[in-house]
Amino acid sequence: MAKVSKEKAKELILDMLEDICGDDIVRENLDINLLEEDLIDSLDYVTLLMDVEDQIGVVLAPSELKREEMDTPNKIISVVQSRM
Results as ranks from 00 to 15, higher is better:
S42K: 00
L43V: 15
D44V: 07
Q55S: 10
D51A: 13
E11Q: 13
V80M: 13
K3T: 10
P73N: 00
E68A: 12
I76F: 01
I56G: 07
L12H: 12
D31L: 14
L30W: 01
Y45K: 03
L34Q: 05
V46T: 12
K6A: 03
I77Y: 03
D23S: 12
L48Y: 05
M84V: 14
D19C: 00
M50D: 07
V46I: 15
Y45D: 03
K75I: 10
S63Y: 07
R27I: 11
L60V: 15
Q55C: 02
V4P: 07
D38P: 00
K6R: 14
N29V: 11
T47S: 15
L60Q: 03
S82P: 04
D38I: 04
D38V: 05
N74L: 12
L43Y: 08
L34G: 06
E36L: 01
I25V: 11
L34C: 06
L17T: 09
D41G: 14
K75H: 03
N29I: 10
R27P: 00
K75E: 08
R27L: 04
M1D: 13
M84I: 13
E53G: 03
L49N: 02
N33L: 05
E7F: 05
L14R: 01
E11L: 13
G22C: 03
L49T: 00
I13Q: 00
E69W: 07
T72M: 02
L60F: 15
L12C: 05
N74V: 07
T47K: 06
M1A: 13
M16T: 09
E68N: 04
R67S: 06
L12K: 14
E69Y: 05
E28R: 06
L48Q: 03
L39Y: 14
L39K: 10
L49F: 14
I40G: 01
I77N: 01
V58P: 07
M70K: 02
D71Y: 02
